[in-house]
Simulated scan of single mutants.
Amino acid sequence: MDSPTQTPAEEMPQNRVLLVLSEAADRDSITEILLPESFSLEHASSPAEAQAIHPHFQPDLVILDLPNDATSITDFLGELGSDSLTKRATVIVVLAVDQAAPALVIGEAEIVDFMRRPFRTTEVLARVRNQIAHRRLQLQHTALISQRDTTLVARDRFMGMAAHDLRNPLASIRGLSELLRDGAVGSLTSDQRELVESINEASESMHALLNEMLDFATIEAGKFKFEPAPHDLVNLIDRSLHPANIEAAKKSTRLLFLAPKHPPLALIDAAKIRQVLENLLSNAVKYSPPGSTITVEFHAKAHHCGFAIKDQGPGIPAGEHEQLFRDFGRLSVRPTGGESSTGLGLAICQRIVNAHGGTIEAENLAQGGCEFRVTLPLAP
């Protein structure tokens, strides 16, 4: 079985070299050097003749000299550059011993080296072998990128399908646990009620996980859409505080919103920014110790506005800042109430804010805790 890092055989260099040399003596000299080395060779005496040979021979390397007809070589090099990366030949230009190297940049053709007459066996072999080896590595790199992209697409598709298919049975679990909790089938003992509450809380956590997986899969598949319009960001913050307050109350945590009296409008997709707000507020509650205060501040300047959420939690551990917005990135600190975390929430927030042309940053506060600061464009 082939190694997964191999480039498919049909895309690998076959050591095909096209000699586009106007002098028969030059063609004979290089042929004599390369033929014993198992190179497959084709010859052309002009760029025009090479254009007829190139499509079916598909060389890995072209060795050419510079004819007086500048148009013909421009056309030929342009043809080489128009090929796909896996079929594009590299080019070595032959120069006279005292000829200056020209500045040749024709389309995407890769003129990688120069070789001077008179030809020396060791030099010709070294330059040709080097370029063939370089091209082999280039194609392997291209194949690895293609494999990676294919794998990522499959992963995101699987995540989306799995999350979507799990939502219905999860909704049933949540609904049935709520019926039991509310006494629809009879009263429960304290132990039974505690178990039902645990089932309900677990289903809520699972629901949040599935939503994040679906959001992530949608964004990664390039299907993320948002519709920015003028919105009252302060009002949106105020409404986002309600679900956060419910969770905060369980830990005796206080949410304080410092709202301005006459805020400007922000140019945002309200549903998407509310998702960012609720995620950041939920994180602040998760990582804050019981009885602490979480402060939300609105800020505005000439061309942008936004909000900052400051908590009194452990902050970002040293050396872990780069993990914050990474896909599935998790810090060494853990939620203070045993809450679950997928490692996707902040990555999704960053993509949403970036799509608005805004920024999201995080830093530790001097007095302890952490601040997440989001900046968004003002409405015109």
Rank of each mutant, 00 (worst) to 15 (best):
M1R: 09
S3P: 03
P4H: 08
T7E: 03
P8R: 00
P8G: 05
P8D: 07
P13K: 06
R16T: 06
D26K: 05
D28H: 03
E32T: 11
L41G: 11
I53K: 09
D60Y: 08
L61Y: 00
L66Y: 06
L66C: 08
S72N: 02
S72Q: 07
T74I: 07
G78K: 02
G81D: 01
S82V: 06
S84P: 03
K87S: 13
R88G: 09
I92S: 10
I92E: 07
A100D: 11
I106C: 14
G107C: 00
E108Q: 13
E108F: 06
V112D: 05
V112R: 15
F114E: 01
R120G: 11
V124D: 14
R136N: 04
L137N: 12
A143M: 04
S146V: 07
D149Q: 13
T150K: 15
F158C: 09
H164N: 07
A171I: 05
S172G: 15
S177N: 11
L180Q: 05
R181S: 00
S187D: 00
T189G: 15
S190W: 08
E194S: 12
V196T: 12
E201Q: 15
A202W: 06
S203G: 15
S205D: 07
S205W: 09
M206P: 02
E212P: 02
L214F: 08
T218P: 04
E220W: 04
F224A: 15
E227K: 14
P230F: 05
N235F: 08
N235L: 14
L236P: 04
R239F: 04
R239P: 00
H242Y: 09
P243C: 03
A249H: 08
A249Y: 00
L256K: 12
A259G: 02
K261I: 06
L265K: 07
I273G: 02
L281P: 09
A284V: 10
T293H: 14
T295V: 14
A300Y: 03
F307Y: 13
I316F: 02
Q323G: 01
L324Q: 04
R326F: 00
R326P: 00
S341H: 06
L346T: 04
C349G: 01
Q350S: 05
R351F: 10
R351N: 12
A355L: 14
H356S: 10
H356L: 06
G357H: 03
A362L: 11
N364F: 06
C370G: 00
A379L: 11
P380H: 13
